[in-house]
């Protein structure tokens, strides 16, 4: 019931944003808004993996970047973006599945898992940065080194490459994608699979002793999160273009901050966190002599000190609601 209500609320908010924002925002601001929505999808992906799967992944930016690059390379090679979208989901999902298989079936401890995912990000960052020059190309797509791929094509109408979507429509697509991801995450958490993931987060040993093969569930949610991060990368690529910064530590760190500030163990919290913190850093960027990263750091420290559970759980908890069970906001 509760879930149904939250899904309906999310649909209403999304529809309102889709209807209102293109009318009131100028083009530049709307493109920025699309970037924020892509970040929200990225935050949602980590909210799922970390907040519900209990897997602290420092490498969510790796899947974000892989999704973006996979999209750009596929779209350039196919000269059509229709199939590039599934590629943008599949490539990070496959990489996550392979990496997750090694980590979870090798029973690598949590600390090393953080280190491994972080290392993956660093390796990709350095690798992509070093792909300047004409010899680095995949089919027709030059990787472009630190310049990225400025020729990243925007989405076209499915099956109609001559007809690229205008930025207004891409904004609608992005909001719709965020809504779908949210609903998918909600439904996943209500499903048997999701409930078992939450149980594993609560107590891995107990889950094993009840007969659950935890490796399988962790691999599942890790891979799902990577596909979602890939989708975020694809959306991002549509507003800007793909470049190695997508793999940077700056993003890896930011995603974690969005989730922590928004509220670990919630879905909507990190989404709101991502959007608000992006607004904040953008606004801070317009101030003279202030480094936006500094502001972000201050927000994190304040959040951790004052609302350790994250802003959203503290707000809803403040309303006196006791919430047993695994339900997710």
């Amino acid at each position: 019931m509760r879930s149904a209500f939250e899904i309906i609320a999310a649909i209403i908010v999304a529809l309102a944003a889709m209807f209102m924002l293109p009318r009131i925002l100028e083009l530049f601001a709307l493109i920025n808004a699309t970037v924020y929505v892509s970040m929200a999808v990225l935050a949602l992906s980590l909210a799922l993996v970390w907040g519900f799967g209990g897997i602290l992944c420092f490498g969510q930016a790796a899947f974000f970047g892989l999704g973006g690059y996979a999209y750009a390379v596929a779209a350039i090679n196919f000269a059509d973006t229709t199939l590039a979208v599934p590629v943008a989901l599949a490539v990070p999902a496959l990489v996550a599945a392979a990496l997750g298989y090694v980590m979870f079936f090798g029973r690598i401890s949590d600390v090393y898992m953080g280190a491994i995912t972080l290392t993956l990000t660093l390796i990709l960052f350095n690798f992509v940065n070093s792909t300047a020059g004409d010899q680095w190309r995949i089919g027709a797509a030059p990787l472009g080194g630190f310049n990225g791929i400025p020729a990243t094509p925007p989405l076209n109408f499915p099956g109609d490459p001559g007809n690229p979507l205008p930025p207004e429509t891409i904004f609608l697509v992005a909001v719709f994608a965020l809504l779908l991801c949210y609903i998918l995450a909600k439904l996943t958490l209500r499903s048997r699979f999701g409930r078992i993931c939450v149980a594993i987060r609560e107590n891995e040993r107990r889950a094993e002793l009840l007969g659950y093969d935890v490796r399988f569930y962790k691999l599942g949610i890790f891979t799902l999160g990577a596909a979602m991060a890939g989708l975020a990368g694809m959306l991002f690529a549509n507003c800007v273009f793909v470049s190695p910064t997508m793999f940077s530590l700056f993003y890896s760190g930011q995603i974690i901050i969005w989730v922590m500030v928004g509220g670990l163990g919630t879905l909507i919290g990190p989404v709101i966190g991502a959007i608000l913190l992006n607004l904040l850093t953008t606004w801070a960027g317009t101030l003279p002599d202030i480094n936006p990263s500094l502001i972000l750091g201050v927000v994190l420290v304040l959040a951790v000190l004052m609302v350790p559970k994250g802003v959203l759980p503290s707000l809803t908890g403040g309303l006196g609601r006791l919430r047993p069970g695994s339900g997710a906001r």
């Binding site: 409930r195 939450v198 149980a199 987060r201 609560e202 107590n203 040993r205 107990r206 094993e208 002793l209 009840l210 007969g211 659950y212 093969d213 935890v214 163990g265 047993p324 069970g325 695994s326």
Partner: peptide
């Protein structure tokens, strides 16, 4: 592995209670 042994039909209540703290009793 523990889960495979559990599936044979071996249940254990550990000395230090091993529970799903964040979940409800019924869900557990």
């Amino acid at each position: 592995d523990s889960f495979a042994i559990a599936r044979l039909g071996i249940g254990i209540k550990t000395q230090v209670p091993s529970l799903f703290d964040g979940l409800s009793v019924l869900e557990s």
